[in-house]
Nucleic acid binder design. Structure first.
Lengths: 315, 315
DNA sequence: GAGGGGCATAACCTCAGATTATGCACAGAC
DNA sequence: GTCTGTGCATAATCTGAGGTTATGCCCCTC
């Protein structure tokens, strides 16, 4: 044990002693420490017995520190002041090192979490506070967010942005679904299938209607058998073989690589926009935020060619 | 409360943290602190939660301090080292300030204790450890005694001495005893009274036989109705009216002044010796010892004239 | 002389800090 | 590849240090 512990059985005694010494009153110290006056009296007696030092002179209603008590009080207060300063500065630094990021649930679950281990390995001292947000129009400053992602042209006032990944949307379903309900030759065939939709209240994303119209398939009325609250839900339903979902290429990349999802068609839609990494421009970013941004860019989310499978000609 | 306490609910957490950080092992820290390993694990978790700081990186069987943990460990250890040094030096100084004195029980009870308040008031930071000794030939060095008293000519090898009080021995009894059994005109009359004796195994003091012989009263055989183990006992018996005791003038001074004892005769015996304050010569005395010696000398134990009372002619 | 305030102690209570039981993860040995 | 050992983590439970209440003592003020 640290040798100090052989001198005082409980470091908490010093909290008590410091308060009593500063207030020159066991009663006032007790109030401050939220304990009863006899608790302070007893604790000081135990400290005096343990150390063999007379720390206070009790003079009826006046409490005086002995010379030894004065000395110990001064040093204890300095030690406590110093430790407080150390912990506070560590806390402040920690707060600066905690990068507050906010993404859609689908991005977090489908893309970020599987890769986070690599970030942690490369930057063990950077902490991320990951919030799942359901809005496009989040005020980064207001909500004290260090970094987020946003779909668009990358030009927003008060925002720094870095292009992250192309928006490319394509239908996905499970291999089982395709085997059981396929083949699907052209986009119009999709109308005969269970299309998995999602609607996010505060985020505008391309839906089935838009996708089909972009592929010259007029849609008078779209069946709405399944509507999820976000893209993540519809992707998970697709993985379970419950229909065909629209998948953003970078989000379904892992599922496809793993064979859990396949491309029933080779058609996809590129909006011409991209998802950008964004930060508020008003304050210099934390070191950890820069590290995280650089790491995100390194991931090269556009990389990797996905081949349609399932209904490709096979022997 | 000290603001540190708002950051860490228990200062004892720091004991635990310091040990774990130094040993780089919760298990080893637990052994050192005499607690179980889960206790250390839990305490560190609570400290991390309270401060919001990640202090350790757990890597299977290897424990590493984070950068924050390193910083806190370094500062905690310095603070603890410093406090330990302060308390230790206070303890050493206290040991130096504790004056170990040794006197006969009769001196302590009859003379010293009634006056000690004055010493305390003048020297509040000097602590006395007062032992009651039953020997004249006490080895001061062997028994780590700083100051004592001894009867004699004041010349002892290896001893510093200061004359304290003349040895003057005189009969004393209570007023009631004198009223009931008096008057007593001359020393020979004492033989008709209850003489209170004492014998100390390891201290030679004048007894009734010697006193009477010094006053030309041959004593063939002395009644030994009461024999106490020290002078204190016989004085207390005299106060209770149980007989006539021999009292050393300085020891009975207070009782006489208070009227609890009277002098039945005006005869007293002066041995030509004195009681001396003594200290071992081999080491420089502690400051407190010097202060106490000076204070004893200031008391002027020889001062004050005692008048025989009781059978003096009165109108 | 009575009342108030603050420290001290005894007797008793209780929950923070400890335990035991057990699980998990990983490295090393075979 | 499997098994064993080691160390950290957590849940459930236990218990005694640190708290409480009750009360006494001492001294000052009115």
């Amino acid at each position: 044990m640290h040798r100090l512990r052989s001198l005082i059985p409980s470091a908490n005694y010093l909290f008590c002693f410091e308060a009593a010494a500063r207030r020159r009153s066991f009663t006032a110290a007790a109030q401050e420490l939220n304990v009863s006056q006899p608790a302070v009296s007893k604790t000081i007696r135990l400290l005096e017995e343990a150390t063999g030092l007379k720390l206070f002179r009790r003079e009826h209603t006046r409490l005086e520190l002995t010379a030894e008590g004065q000395r110990l009080y001064k040093e204890t207060q300095e030690a406590f002041d110093h430790l407080h300063m150390v912990i506070s500065s560590l806390q402040k630094k920690h707060s600066n090192d905690v990068v507050r990021v906010s993404f859609s649930a689908s991005f977090v679950q489908l893309w970020l979490l599987p890769r986070l281990k690599d970030f942690k390995a490369k930057h063990p001292d950077v902490s991320l506070r990951i919030e799942e947000s359901s809005r496009d129009d989040q005020d980064l400053v207001e909500e004290d967010i260090d970094l987020s992602a946003r779909l668009g042209n990358g030009k927003w006032p008060g925002i720094h942005s870095w292009r992250f990944v192309t928006e490319e949307v394509l239908p996905v379903c499970s291999p089982d679904y395709l085997r059981d309900h396929g083949p699907i030759h052209e986009p119009a065939d999709l109308l005969q299938h269970t299309l998995l939709n999602f609607e996010e209240r505060h985020r505008t994303r391309l839906g089935w209607r838009e996708w089909l119209e972009r592929h010259a398939v007029p849609v008078a009325r779209l069946k709405q058998d399944f509507v999820f609250t976000d893209a993540l839900g519809s992707i998970e339903a697709a993985v379970l073989g419950q229909g065909i979902a629209l998948g953003w290429k970078h989000l379904v990349h892992d599922h496809i690589r793993a064979g859990r999802l396949v491309l029933p068609l080779q058609e996809s839609y590129r909006s011409g926009h991209a998802i950008h990494i964004i930060m508020p421009a008003q304050r210099p970013p934390k070191r950890g935020t820069e590290l995280f941004r650089d790491w995100l860019i390194e991931q090269d989310a556009d990389a990797g060619v996905l081949q349609p499978t399932g209904n490709a000609d096979t022997g």
